[in-house]
């Protein structure tokens, strides 16, 4: 694996923890649906944790319960998190369209049972995408989730489906 590929495969960051059923309505509120990403990203999760959007740092990791990203098809839900610099979302499960959109915009996601109970907000997590592994650096707890299928990791590695499209047409 090249150095850049390794950088994308291994990530360590501060954990922002959320519960189950985090909907696209809180990830990308309807009132700002057609605003530019610079505006949209300021309102991510504001009704659940108003501290998140102003304080999240590039490389931070979101840990959540089940059905993360449920609701509408708005890709801005995934795009907003990526725009805030979130390196990866690890959840007990994802809503189908959110997961598809995350891959399409190049935001890594891992399904990992038990992750919600293994982290507190503010812990540090280490994630290895290709293995689907998630480690809590503070407690030493290590979990192995489902690594994404190769088809989806290829799209992530390309930086999203539009890059795949561009490379196909070249």
């Amino acid at each position: 694996m090249s150095e850049t590929a390794l950088e994308h495969d291994h990530m360590t960051g501060r954990v922002w923890k959320f519960d189950s059923d985090i909907s696209t309505d809180v990830l990308s509120p309807g009132q700002y649906a057609v605003d530019p990403v610079e505006v949209r990203k300021l309102h991510v999760l504001e009704s659940v944790n108003p501290e998140f959007a102003p304080n999240v740092q590039p490389g931070d990791i979101v840990v959540a319960g089940s059905n993360f990203g449920c609701g509408s098809s708005r890709e801005t839900a995934a795009e907003n998190l990526r725009a805030l610099g979130v390196a990866c979302v690890v959840a007990e499960s994802f809503a189908r369209i959110f997961m598809r959109n995350a891959v399409a915009v190049g935001l890594p996601v891992i399904v990992c049972k038990g992750v919600h109970d293994s982290f507190s907000d503010g812990d540090t997590a280490k994630v290895v995408l290709s293995e689907g592994s998630v480690t809590n650096i503070d407690t030493g707890t290590s979990l192995v989730g489902d690594s994404l299928p190769a088809e989806m990791r290829d799209i992530l590695a390309a930086g999203g489906i539009l890059n795949v499209l561009q490379s196909q047409s070249e």
């Binding site: 890709e75 598809r100 399409a104 088809e151 489906i161 499209l165």
Partner: peptide
């Protein structure tokens, strides 16, 4: 349902990956 990037791909190629 799909997102906007997937829709760009679908409109351009007429195809899309699915599980």
């Amino acid at each position: 349902g799909i997102g906007t990037s997937d829709m760009v791909y679908a409109l351009s190629t007429g195809r899309l990956w699915f599980r």
